[in-house]
Nucleic acid binder design. Structure first.
Lengths: 337, 337
DNA sequence: GCCGTATGCTTTACCGGTTAAGTACCGGCA
DNA sequence: TGCCGGTACTTAACCGGTAAAGCATACGGC
């Protein structure tokens, strides 16, 4: 593979008959360059097909113009059939692209790769780091932030020390409350839940929202815990049904688990929503196509990604007023409830 | 955001009482360093929390240790509910991670971003470029390759001039043939197809395979064209059914379109597979859960990603024997056919 | 007519590493 | 003892940009 010599600033300068510095200023769009010279330089750039060397530039500017998105999951999990991550990536990608920044994607499911992320960021390979979905009390965001690296999280961080790290979250509590209230309005009284993993804020907050809403109505709940996968939804639903055969509704903390729950309910010979009403959380595109179509709490995942990226760009440019954002959610009523 | 001073080689050298060059050799694991010195240097590195500056290193080594994956689609399309891209990313990610290389993700749906990709690669920001799903006769892979940048494509490139660019593809022809033969063995004779977009090799090759297999059996086909989305599957199926109400099978060029076709068939009051047998192509995880479960041609998408990354790493290390790979596919028979 | 001051370019000193060339030191051998 | 060669380090020259400081030239004001 022959590596054609790429032209340098020096080459352009010689060709245009000016100094390196002048070429640099033209390339970077400086104002104080005479029109004639600017034209000559641009022509030389054109003729030689000059493209600035990013490494050299980064070395002196201390900027790379790229941003990392960390998915603290194994690659396996990130791209299963869970559409959360793809949607986040999409949002982040769109926003970064319009800011002319590059997206560096890092999957950090293992402890080793966790380390790798830290070294990578510390090596100055990226200008900032965004975390997509965090488990437990991950110290990494906080420790990167303390090293002066801009950090943005998706979901309220669980560690108190990370209180200075801006985050993007949705109104989990409000969304769940709307879902439960909808079930109550339908006349359901034996409302169970399939909660998400309890080492993730989304899992914890949605469960808390469910419990609060039920308590408000003076009802007791019934909880099974899943891990956001479809299979865990199937299993959790089976457990709930065997423990309380007469339950008449279930709030499921993710669409994927809700789809699993849907099949488990149908497999048990019950009708949806006639016997058991089901509400999910996410509103993936496929949820319109399930049988029956899934009633669910829509969270604007792509927007979360966009917002994270926007916060990040703010941090990188050290603009003032970069604060955590909580986005609204919306109950989408379809056939399942 | 205070940016804590990161220690440099120089600082480590002073602390360990040696020269910069020696530290560099220790850090890069050179053999010819006395044990005592090596220990002293390592200790200094530890104490200062030294991490080499990647930009400085790249500047002299001309290597960045990162690889770009180009998705020539708008971000919107890449992460719709099509699981092809996520799976490719997953495979690529896994393989690159184990080679300690970084994945830089670029979505290049527009002409502008197309340009951006070229400049980015030319700027030496990445050591190589992988293309995930190409439309039409994209000149970019070829032109990057000619500039000496390692390039790998997924799917046989459509341009003849790119014949030197290694690619990873699956046995589209064989897979489709197996599907059609299966339908024939079921006794179906009016076998239609929903083809993929005809500006993509996957679309073209699968249609060609369908036509060849039918011709071999002395039958005529019936073609509708979709764009790999679920909606287009619905529409195409409606068209097919209205044009030939008595068709008894359809081979659909992607699982997502097949799911659309499934609902269109059912909506028309026909049974699957009793009236119309349906076979897809992909074997996404959800295809086990459709109603009825989808018979489909499984392509090893994650493996395609892994293989692309492996080829890429071979190119970057200029190892000999980097050749295009065609992976096998497999007919997975479930309820729909 | 001279000086102060813009204006616009060049000179030069970095950024933080890698690596070829240079040097000090030590042991082996005639 | 003196010379040679190898080992293990240091010195110094880059890599390709950016930006501060330096230096002409032209121009307005008194």
């Amino acid at each position: 593979m022959m590596t054609r010599e790429r032209p340098t600033l020096e080459a352009v300068a010689r060709r245009a008959g000016v100094s390196r510095a002048t070429v640099s200023r033209v390339v970077n769009g400086s104002t104080t360059v005479a029109v004639a010279i600017r034209a000559a330089v641009n022509q030389a750039v054109e003729e030689l097909g000059y493209v600035p060397n990013q490494a050299a530039r980064s070395l002196v500017t201390q900027r790379t113009e790229s941003i990392a998105l960390i998915l603290p999951e194994t690659a396996n999990r990130v791209f299963s059939d869970d559409l959360f991550f793809p949607a986040i990536i999409r949002g982040v990608g769109m926003e970064l692209e319009s800011a002319d920044k590059q997206l560096v994607l890092m999957m950090a499911g293992s402890a080793a790769s966790h380390d790798r992320v830290e070294r990578y960021a510390m090596a100055g390979h990226v200008d900032g780091v965004m975390f997509a979905s965090m488990h437990g009390a991950d110290p990494l965001p906080g420790s990167l932030a303390r090293m002066g690296i801009p950090v943005v999280c998706s979901g309220r961080p669980m560690t108190a020390t990370d209180s200075d790290v801006p985050y993007v979250d949705v109104d989990q509590f409000g969304g769940v409350a709307a879902a439960v209230r909808h079930l109550l309005a339908m006349g359901r009284r034996r409302i169970a839940t399939i909660a998400g993993p309890q080492d993730m804020v989304a899992g914890i907050d949605r469960l808390a929202g469910y419990q609060a809403a039920l308590q408000e109505a003076g009802l007791a709940g019934h909880v099974a815990v899943g891990d956001f996968t479809r299979d865990s939804g199937v299993r959790a639903m089976q457990t709930l049904l065997s423990e309380d055969p007469s339950l008449d509704a279930v709030f499921v903390a993710s669409d994927l688990m809700a789809h699993g729950a849907l099949s488990a309910v149908k497999a048990s010979g019950r009708g949806v929503p006639s016997d058991v009403a089901v509400i999910g959380f996410d509103d993936f595109e496929i949820s319109q196509y399930s049988d029956p179509p899934l009633t669910t709490v829509r969270q604007p995942i792509v927007d979360m990604g966009r917002t994270m990226a926007r916060l990040m760009i703010g941090l990188v440019n050290s603009s003032p007023g970069v604060h955590s954002v909580v986005l609204p959610v919306e109950l989408v009523v379809r056939g399942s409830a």
